[in-house]
Write a protein that binds this DNA or RNA. Structure first.
Lengths: 259, 259
DNA sequence: TGTTTGCATTGATTCAAGTCAACTTCGAAG
DNA sequence: CTTCGAAGTTGACTTGAATCAATGCAAACA
């Protein structure tokens, strides 16, 4: 319900890529919060501080520790953000898709790496121009602020997941969240295969691929989801899934002893 | 080193509490990023949208799910932010102290609860006035944006900790971070007892109190820390502690086989 | 058409952290 | 001074997820 603000904002404008390189055709400027008509001067300015960028599946476009020169706004596709430990352990901190900003969690250097798990198209902004962009388009600053606040809410939710939930609860939480995310995007075909591999899920949920697989089997056996031949996951009972995710119904509704 | 921006900014101004109820005596407006002289009109405005607030140790001042009407800036003391599950499991998402903002991770409702673990003094702002405050003091908006970005970096770091680190690594990471945090605050008496209980540590690190205790014993036996009679923790070898926290030296410098 | 290869699933076993329980210490209350 | 209770430590045992290992399966390829 919250994602709505970030994902399903349809603007009447439809600026071609030829005019504003940084903004994709078809979606215009809606992703970055610009919904009003823009002056020629504004268009020229936007074109000067942003560039379109397409990265292929598997390609890394942000490397943890590199100087944080760019700031991205995703137009199409899904990418994973992650942190690696020297011995190879990896934690995926989030998946980003259309409308999301990438590059907030950065000071002089990026605090994470980013890799496309599908073909990803985005606008790249020069980070040094960010203040200027904000000055000219306060709507973008506000939108970015709201996005950051929302990311913090999501991050706290994820900390609860990683610190306190069981494997099955983690899977249920993720599937529940992804399900909602899809329903707010145009392509609400909830029966689709997930764009990420089991390894990505494991790295996101703080588990191993084997445990992810077993947890999916558990949920399947409970009749809450179904797993297709291509490993795609469909939610059959979304309410039940949400209950498992929040551990509701199991002990929150604990019967009070009479004594 | 990053905390420096948020914690050790000393402004020459020293506005009394009588003039601006929302700003504490002694620190003036530096916490919220106001370092220039303010006009009478500005002072009056600030007084109208903010109020000073003191909460005692153990007192909860933000409840998850409540309407997010206020926004806080901590002046003194330490508070814990946390999320609870219906069956009692708890995850502390962070500890906040002087200079920190509380209330970012909120939409219409707070996404977390907050409880003072020491006496805490803070400024409370009306959230509906936030836009007006930003409009009048762009420095605050910028500071808040920087703070939010930094919180995201910290949150991602914590996700890595909760998802992938061992108990000892988690403790080492926390102690290393707290050690740095202290060194940037005025009272850099690194031999101090931690303000939080073992239970708080456990809820922050996704462990049980017994495991926290055992991990502290491990680090003590390694000679990296010492634990005082009052359970206060002192760092003896900060470099070693940081290495353990990042799992460096164990396998990152793995010797490459000759073959 | 068979082979390879990358994912995914499932089973057997191990292990790090959780659970249960005993004990210590210390400060506050009586 | 004694008692009490909260907080912390340590030990014995259990368990949920990790690890190790085998197998399935379909797309890519020779």
């Amino acid at each position: 319900m919250l994602d709505h603000r970030y994902r399903s904002q349809r603007a009447p404008i439809n600026l071609s890529e030829a005019i504003i390189p940084g903004l994709c055709a078809g979606c215009g400027a809606r992703h970055i919060g610009l919904c009003d008509a823009l002056s020629d001067e504004d268009l020229h300015f936007l074109a000067s501080v942003s560039r379109p960028l397409t990265v292929q599946k598997g390609q890394t476009f942000v490397v943890e520790g590199d100087a944080a020169r760019s700031f991205f706004n995703i137009n199409y596709g899904v990418a994973k953000l992650y942190k690696d430990m020297p011995d190879g352990r990896r934690q995926i901190t989030g998946f980003v898709s259309a409308g999301d900003f990438v590059g907030l969690a950065a000071d002089s250097c990026y605090a994470f790496s980013a890799e496309a798990i599908q073909e990803v198209r985005m606008c790249r902004f020069d980070r040094t121009e960010l203040r200027n962009v904000f000055g000219r388009f306060p709507a973008i600053e506000q939108r970015l602020f709201d996005f950051a606040s929302h990311e913090l809410v999501v991050a706290q939710e994820q900390m609860l997941l990683l610190g306190r939930k069981t494997a099955v609860e983690r899977l249920a939480s993720f599937l529940d969240g992804w399900h909602h995310r899809l329903s707010h995007t145009e392509d609400s075909n909830s029966g689709r295969a997930l764009p990420m591999t089991r390894a990505d899920l494991a790295d996101y949920l703080g588990l191993t691929i084997e445990t992810v697989s077993r947890a999916l089997s558990s949920l399947r056996k409970l009749g809450v989801i179904s797993v297709a031949a291509d490993h795609g996951v469909s939610v059959l009972q979304s309410t039940r899934l949400a209950e498992i995710a929040q551990a509701a119904g199991s002990s929150s509704a604990k019967i009070q002893p009479m004594a």
